Simulated scan of single mutants.
Amino acid sequence: MAILLSLALAGCSTATGNLLSTEDNRPISFTADRGVAAQPFPNNYRTEILAFMRTYLNNPVGLHDTAMAEPVQRTVGGRLRYVSCIRYAARDTDGSYRPARERAIVYVDGRLDRVVDDAGELCAGVAYGPFPELATLTR
């Protein structure tokens, strides 16, 4: 039984299995990341950040000390990407506020791709400006 299961799973991972590749044997890409150096500027970055943070945070209500840096190009995983940085202090369950946290938002092909929790190097030297829309998020 274990051998049959192994053979069935092995068939799914081949180019003919169509679960991990397209009909012309190109790998499926969920972010359409072509690995090109010329990435487009993320024009809707403010709107995308707000929509994402509403779902990313357990309680997006009442954020303090909200700030954002405009997207700049940085090298992420060996590839040139636009990165914007945000900083905010979230409310804890007891009503007090945690220290402000910094996050890096990485864009691929002009769209929000992921959040990097350890934003130290990616956000080094960026110029933060106010981001009041983040402070007015609702659930």
Rank of each mutant, 00 (worst) to 15 (best):
L7R: 06
A8F: 13
A8I: 08
A8W: 06
L9Q: 14
A10D: 11
A10P: 04
G11E: 11
G11H: 02
C12Y: 12
C12G: 12
C12I: 14
C12Q: 13
C12K: 13
S13A: 14
S13F: 13
T14V: 05
T14L: 08
A15I: 12
A15Y: 13
A15P: 04
T16D: 15
T16V: 12
T16M: 12
G17Q: 07
N18S: 13
N18I: 07
L19Y: 09
L19R: 07
L20T: 14
L20D: 09
L20M: 14
T22L: 14
T22E: 12
T22Y: 13
E23S: 02
D24F: 01
D24P: 05
D24T: 10
D24S: 08
D24M: 04
N25S: 06
N25Y: 11
N25P: 00
N25Q: 07
R26W: 12
P27N: 04
P27I: 00
P27Y: 04
P27L: 11
S29T: 03
S29W: 06
F30L: 11
F30H: 10
F30A: 13
T31R: 10
T31Q: 13
T31V: 09
T31D: 12
A32Y: 09
A32N: 10
A32W: 07
A32V: 04
D33R: 00
D33K: 00
D33Q: 03
R34S: 14
R34W: 14
R34Q: 13
R34K: 15
G35L: 02
V36N: 15
V36W: 15
A37R: 12
A37P: 14
A38G: 10
Q39T: 10
P40L: 05
P40K: 05
P40D: 08
P42S: 08
P42T: 00
P42D: 01
P42W: 00
P42L: 00
N43S: 10
N44P: 10
N44C: 07
Y45F: 03
Y45I: 00
R46A: 05
T47M: 06
T47G: 11
I49Y: 06
I49F: 03
I49W: 00
I49H: 01
L50W: 05
L50V: 02
L50S: 04
A51H: 09
F52D: 06
F52R: 09
F52V: 03
F52G: 02
F52I: 01
F52T: 05
F52Y: 09
M53D: 02
R54K: 10
R54Q: 03
R54N: 04
T55N: 11
T55D: 14
Y56W: 10
Y56S: 08
Y56M: 04
L57T: 01
N58W: 05
N59A: 10
N59Q: 12
P60R: 06
P60G: 08
V61L: 13
G62V: 00
G62R: 01
G62Y: 03
L63S: 03
L63A: 11
H64A: 08
H64R: 12
H64W: 04
D65Q: 08
T66H: 10
T66C: 15
T66S: 10
A67L: 06
M68W: 04
A69F: 06
A69C: 07
A69V: 05
P71H: 03
P71R: 01
V72K: 05
Q73T: 13
R74K: 09
R74V: 02
R74G: 09
T75W: 02
T75C: 06
T75I: 08
T75A: 05
T75P: 05
V76L: 07
G77L: 04
